[in-house]
Nucleic acid binder design. Structure first.
Length: 253
DNA sequence: ACAAACGTGCCT
DNA sequence: AGGCACGTTTGT
């Protein structure tokens, strides 16, 4: 399940009939033009004004079709951790509350590091991660951001997990996107990794057309900075920090 | 063939 | 560390 969501802002005319092949779709020709309706600052500062929460919870048939093209192959078989994965975070948050009420979700204290970093969570960073996350915190999640680490929630690889998730689940999520084949492995060849399609940048449908990658596309051959997959930003093969605040930790690069 | 974009090395 | 350029891989 991968619902295309344009975190960048309100739907543009382009987006109205665009999302069928996102996130792995090549850029539409219209996106190559630089008359994008939103400025770079819009990407940076706009706090999720037009996220269709109702649509995220109950996608319309059209949205479902767009998000799940007929030829699309699921990246992996649905598994129970998917219960924690949501574009909106709404039902996972609701589920978390219900579980906590029922005493089924362990409440583990956050580390001081996490707590400290959590206090900085609204600060933008160079990659735009902070601003990307703001919609989750400010609008999409009905809970305080600090509640998640406190409740044992952590995020990694585009997935949420609870403290109740065992090592198996963690390992599976940590390893995701780093299949032996994609890492080169025994072949020794330089294999391309693929974007996860699930992280916030991957969910973006539009290029900002203003970042250095967009402006320098002809020679740079790079995807828009704000669409660069979080997974691909990390070096392949290394351990992935699965902390909710991983993007604030340089060690996770 | 072509476009998109990942990987990597160099430069600042 | 980040930007840039280019080789290369991958999908259409």
């Amino acid at each position: 399940m991968s619902t295309a969501v344009d975190i960048a802002g309100p739907s543009s005319p382009n987006q109205a009939h665009s999302s069928a092949k996102i996130p792995n779709a090549p850029l539409r020709p219209s996106l190559k033009r630089s008359n994008h309706p939103y400025s770079l600052s819009h990407y940076i500062s706009t706090p999720s004004p037009a996220v269709d929460v109702k649509g995220l919870i109950q996608p319309s048939p059209a949205q479902q079709r767009a998000a799940q093209p007929a030829h699309a192959k699921p990246r992996r078989a649905p598994s129970w951790p998917d219960m924690w994965e949501s574009p909106s975070g709404l039902h996972l948050a609701h589920a978390a509350e219900l579980l906590m009420r029922a005493g089924l979700l362990a409440l583990t204290p956050a580390t001081t590091e996490q707590a400290g970093l959590g206090a900085q969570s609204s600060q933008p960073d160079s990659s735009g991660c902070g601003t990307d996350f703001q919609p989750f915190l400010g609008a999409w999640f009905p809970f305080s951001p600090t509640l998640f680490p406190l409740a044992g929630f952590q995020m990694g690889g585009g997935h949420w997990r609870s403290a109740a998730m065992g090592a198996e689940g963690i390992e599976g999520l940590v390893a995701e996107g780093y299949s032996p084949g994609s890492l080169g492995g025994s072949s020794g060849g330089r294999r391309k990794r693929k974007r996860c399609g699930e992280c916030v940048p991957c969910r973006r449908q539009t290029n900002c057309d203003q970042c250095s990658s967009c402006r320098n596309r002809k020679r740079g051959h790079q995807i828009c900075k704000y669409r660069k997959c979080e997974e691909l930003k990390r070096k392949p093969g290394g351990y992935q920090c699965v902390s909710i605040f991983r993007w604030r930790q340089k060690c996770c690069k």
